[in-house]
């Protein structure tokens, strides 16, 4: 009995180790391909940087309220994400390489590898575009830790939702670029509204807004957890033809 339990434990451990290795292999492959082509990074980072510069140039000298600045930050991040995060699955289908993954890897490990890559990508975009935004459109009483928490939780939810919707549209025979924002819109809308509301607190530093913003960080974190869990549960049905 004891040896049966030991064998079952060893088998579970081997399965978990294999799953992690598959997810890591998919992530490493994405990173390697991206470093050689810079498709997604060019699309996402350039969109974010150019939009930040254009917005700040248009509003130069104007007194911009904290809520408008918060909305601008998240509009830029959302559209930057929509312009590039779908590539992880769309490129596999268009290049005819998705079958390699279907034939060799557990579906959930494929999703995990792709999600990790999109998390890294959105992290880079936030690292580049948000400091640039704050440089060009300064915020006097910035709540730095609050903003970092919002960007972390919001970025995780954004990457998770964008990765799953990318998997949903990747099978479509045509019109993927139109389908992606249409399907993403209702999924990302609640995240955007909460993230903007929270960011207002980080920008205007009004105590009641700060308090509400910390609560919103919790909601953003919950959104990311629910979205990631649901994506893992549903991905296998989406992944197989």
């Amino acid at each position: 009995m004891k040896s049966d339990a030991g064998a079952a434990g060893a088998s579970t451990s081997a399965t978990a180790s294999r799953w992690l290795d598959c997810a890591s292999a998919v992530f490493t492959k994405e990173l390697r391909v991206e470093l050689r082509t810079r498709y997604a990074l060019s699309a996402v980072a350039l969109f974010a940087v150019i939009t930040v510069i254009m917005v700040s140039a248009v509003l130069v000298g104007a007194s911009v309220r904290a809520d408008v600045k918060a909305a601008l930050v998240w509009i830029i991040l959302l559209f930057a994400a929509l312009s590039g995060l779908s590539r992880v699955f769309v490129r596999e289908e268009e290049a005819g390489t998705a079958a390699i993954l279907r034939l060799t890897a557990p579906p959930s490990s494929v999703f995990a590898g792709k999600l990790l890559f999109n998390l890294a990508l959105i992290g880079v975009v936030e690292l580049v575009s948000v400091p640039l935004f704050l440089l060009l459109m300064p915020v006097e009483k910035l709540q730095l830790w609050l903003l970092l928490s919002i960007l972390t939780a919001g970025g995780a939810g954004l990457a998770s939702a964008a990765t799953f919707t990318a998997a949903l549209i990747a099978h479509a025979a045509s019109g993927k670029s139109a389908l992606y924002p249409i399907i993403s819109f209702p999924v990302l809308m609640p995240l955007a509204l909460i993230a903007v509301q929270a960011t207002v607190g980080a920008f205007d530093a009004i105590p009641i807004h700060i308090l509400r913003a910390w609560n919103d960080v919790g909601v953003l974190g919950a959104y990311a957890i629910v979205m990631t869990t649901a994506s893992f549960l549903l991905f296998e049905y989406v992944w197989h033809e």
Partner: peptide, 16 residues
């Protein structure tokens, strides 16, 4: 209908 990854070398494709 199954293509190797264009950006990777043949060795990298098989190792993946």
């Amino acid at each position: 209908d199954v293509n190797p990854y264009e950006e990777l070398t043949a060795v990298e494709n098989l190792e993946f």
